[in-house]
Computed example of a mutant assay.
Amino acid sequence: MTSHQTAQTMKPATAAKKLGVYLEATPAEFQEGVVSRTELNSLQTDPPAWLQELRANGPHPRPVVASKLGVSIAGLARGGVTEALTTEQIEALKTDNPEWLQKERATQAEVRKETVRIKEKQKEKDAQRADQPRGPRS
């Protein structure tokens, strides 16, 4: 008896997320079908023109917008940005540097510093535990 392996597939929304693109901006055939793991790998290694265009100019999904602006997704929402933005719109926001963006960037910087501090503290605790002699095992 031979076993048939079925190709692993995913919904277009999942594939778009993995590709870092805004689903609604993708071609209709991409949105309406399913994407196999092989097709996804092919799109990642040899992106077609439409994917290159989306990655370069957008519209970009919120995680990409947040990353390009140096803020969190929640920070985008607090700033009133709820839609996908193009690269041009992102650059305009960076140039205008509104007060909400300055505040959210500062908040994000503090979060990063705190994350580093916690990691360092954990490393110290781990090192102290490693240095402590262990009692006999029973």
Rank of each mutant, 00 (worst) to 15 (best):
L101K: 12
T38W: 02
Q102S: 14
T115D: 00
T26N: 01
N97Q: 13
P47A: 12
G75S: 10
M10Q: 14
P59D: 09
E39C: 01
V71M: 10
A28F: 01
R117S: 02
I118M: 03
Q52V: 08
A84K: 03
R78I: 10
L85R: 11
A109V: 12
R134Y: 02
R62A: 14
A16K: 10
K121S: 01
A13H: 09
Q5W: 05
L76H: 10
G75V: 13
E29K: 00
W50G: 09
R137F: 04
I90R: 02
E24I: 02
W50D: 06
D126T: 06
A74V: 07
G33Q: 03
N57T: 07
V116R: 05
G79N: 11
N57K: 13
T14S: 14
S138Q: 06
A84H: 07
P98H: 14
V65G: 08
A106Q: 15
E53I: 02
L85P: 02
A109R: 15
G135A: 12
P63Q: 15
T26C: 13
G135L: 11
Q5A: 07
R105N: 14
N57V: 01
G80C: 12
V65S: 09
A130P: 00
I73L: 08
V116N: 00
G79H: 11
R134I: 14
Q8Y: 03
P136N: 07
Q122A: 08
I118F: 00
L93V: 10
V65N: 08
A77Q: 12
V111W: 04
E110P: 00
R134C: 03
P63N: 15
E24G: 01
S67C: 08
K17Q: 15
T82H: 11
Q5H: 05
Q52N: 08
S36E: 01
S3A: 06
A127G: 00
E24H: 06
K103H: 15
E99M: 14
M1W: 01
Q31M: 06
E114G: 02
K123R: 05
V34G: 03
A92P: 01
Q128D: 02
A106H: 14
Q52P: 00
R112H: 09
L85N: 05
G75P: 06
T6A: 08
A74W: 05
A56K: 07
V111N: 05
T6W: 02
R134T: 14
A15W: 05
N41G: 13
G79F: 12
Q102K: 15
R55P: 02
V65D: 12
K119H: 04
T95W: 07
M1N: 00
A106V: 11
A56G: 00
L101P: 08
G70K: 11
G79M: 11
E91C: 01
E99Q: 15
F30W: 04
A56D: 10
K17N: 13
R134W: 00
E110M: 10
L23R: 05
E91N: 14
E88W: 01
M10W: 06
T6P: 00
P61S: 13
V65Y: 13
T38K: 04
E53V: 03
S42T: 13
A84V: 02
Q102W: 09
P48W: 08
T87Y: 05
I90T: 12
L23S: 03
P136E: 05
Q102D: 10
R55A: 05
G70A: 15
S3R: 05
N41A: 12
Q52K: 13
Q31C: 06
S42W: 03
T26D: 01
Y22M: 01
L40V: 09
E24T: 09
Q44L: 15
Q44D: 09
T45L: 12
